[in-house]
Design a protein around this nucleic acid. Structure first.
Lengths: 233, 233
DNA sequence: CGCAGATTGGAGCACTGTTCCACTGTGCCA
DNA sequence: TGGCACAGTGGAACAGTGCTCCAATCTGCG
C-alpha cells in the first residue's frame, strides 16, 4: 500500500502518511491531545476521513507515528556533537529528550501510554539505543548495561514528563515566576502535621530552575553508576 | 452539598462521592482507562448521569479523585513498618508506589496527565511528602532536600510507569516469559548498524526481573545521593 | 480509447461526555 | 398533621468523537 513516489502527481501535494503525521504533530502542538481530531485533520488537509484511514490504521497508530517522528528527530541531533566526555554525551541525549518533551507537552502522556501498552518497541528502542550507546562509552561493565541504561531512561522520561507544565504550557517566564510563587505560598499554608517536609522545601521549589534540577538528577544517577559499576575512582 | 450522614436513608447505600470513586476504580482496574464510562458507571451504580454529576464536576475530577484515592492508600501502608535504616524507608515507599502502579496500570497515564496539567497539587504533594520524609531521615543537608527528593520521585514514577505492562496487564508469569522471549528474539534481528547496543543487551532484557531492576535503579540514585550529599562515607 | 484498481471524501453509525429538567423523597416549620 | 422547600435523582436529548461504508474520481497501462 502507498506505493507512491513513482507516480508524478500535479495535485497540490498528494496525501501521504508523512504529510498526515506532520499535520497531526502541528495540531497536537497547537492544542494538546484534545486538539488532534479526525475532523480537524480532514479540515486542515482538505479531505475526508476515508482518505486518511487509507494511509493510517487508526488514531492510535497515528499518535504512535507522531511520537516516533518527534522522538527520532530529537535523538538525531546529538551524534554530530559528541566532543566531550562520555558523561557529556549522556547529558546531551538527556537534554535532547527533555527539551523535546518540553516543546511537545503531549509527549508526556503519549510516551506513558505507549510504553505501557506496547513496551520494548519502536520508540522505546530508539531511546534505549540512544542512551545505551553513551553508557557503553562510560566503560560500564557489559553485564550492567541493561540495568544501568534502564535506570537512566526511567529517570529521564520521568523527569521530563513531570516538568512538562512548568516548561511549556504556561508560556513566557513572567507567568512561571508568578505560578511558582503562588504554589510556594500554598505549600506554606499546608497542615504542619500532615506536610512538614513539603512546607520546609517550599522556598527551594520556588527558586529552582527546571533544566538545572534535571541535570542535577542526571548527575546523581551518573555518580551512582560510576561509584557502583566503575572499578576506577 | 452532600451534607449527608445526618439523614438516615433506607435506600440501598445512597449515592456519595466515595461510592462513585470506588466504583470508578473498580471499572478502571477491570478494563483500563477505556473501561471508565459514564454509561458503565450509571449501570453499575443503578442510577443516571445526572445523579453522578451532582456529586462530581466532570470526568477529569473523577479520574483525579480515583488517582488520589489509590495513591493515598499506597502511601498510607508504610508508616507502620519503618524499622530499618532510612534507606530501607525509601525503598519501602518506592516499592509501595511501584506495586500500586503495577496493580492499577491506568495510574501510569493518569499520573502523567495529572502532573502535567496541574503540577504541585494533591497527588504530587502526597508523593513528594512521602518520599521527602525518608530523605530527611538520610541526613541529607537541608538545602539539597528538594533537588534530591525530586530526582527520586522522577525516577520512581518514571520506572513504575514504564514497567506497567510487564507487571500487570499480561496476567500470569507464563505469558511474561514468552513475551520477553519474543521481544529478545526480535531485538537480536534488528539492524546491527542501527541498533548495536540494543542487540547486545537482548539477553539481559529477557532475564531481568522488574522489581529487582527497579530496586537496582533506586540503589543507583541512593548511592549518588550519599556520595554527593553526605560528608561521611 | 477504455478498463482495473488505487485513492478519495461525504454520509452515516455507535458511542462518548455533558446538560437539561421533570420528578421523588425527606426533614423542617407552622 | 399538613404543606413546603429543596437536596438529590435519573431519563431523554445534544454536540462531538473515532470509525466504516461506498459511490465517485483519478491514474497509468494495454
Amino acid at each position: 500500500m502507498a506505493t507512491r513516489a513513482r507516480r508524478s502527481r500535479r495535485r497540490a501535494e498528494a496525501l501521504s502518511k508523512e504529510r498526515i503525521v506532520e499535520a497531526a504533530v502541528e495540531l497536537l502542538d497547537a492544542a494538546g491531545e484534545a486538539g488532534l481530531t479526525f475532523r480537524a485533520l480532514t479540515e486542515r488537509l482538505a479531505t475526508g476521513p476515508g482518505a486518511i484511514y487509507w494511509h493510517v490504521a487508526n488514531k492510535d497508530e497515528l499518535l504512535a507515528a507522531a511520537t516516533d517522528d518527534v522522538i527520532a528527530a530529537a535523538l538525531a541531533v546529538e551524534p554530530a556533537k559528541s566532543p566531550g566526555s562520555p558523561q557529556d554525551g549522556i547529558r546531551a541525549v538527556a537534554l535532547g529528550l527533555f527539551d523535546a518533551i518540553g516543546e511537545h507537552p503531549w509527549l508526556a502522556t503519549q510516551l506513558a501510554t505507549q510504553l505501557s501498552c506496547s513496551p520494548w518497541q519502536s520508540v522505546t528502542l530508539r531511546i534505549l539505543e540512544g542512551i545505551g550507546r553513551q553508557v557503553g562509552a562510560l566503560d560500564v561493565p557489559e553485564d550492567s548495561w541493561f540495568t544501568t541504561t534502564s535506570a537512566l531512561m526511567h529517570y529521564i522520561l520521568g523527569a521530563a514528563g513531570q516538568n512538562t507544565a512548568n516548561t511549556g504550557v504556561l508560556g513566557p517566564d513572567a507567568n512561571r515566576a508568578e505560578f511558582l510563587d503562588a504554589a510556594a505560598k500554598a505549600w506554606k499554608e499546608l497542615d504542619p502535621g500532615d506536610y512538614p517536609f513539603t512546607r520546609a522545601v517550599a522556598d527551594q521549589m520556588r527558586e529552582h530552575d527546571d533544566r538545572e534540577q534535571f541535570l542535577a538528577g542526571i548527575d546523581l544517577v551518573l555518580t551512582g553508576i560510576i561509584t557502583r559499576h566503575l572499578p576506577s575512582a
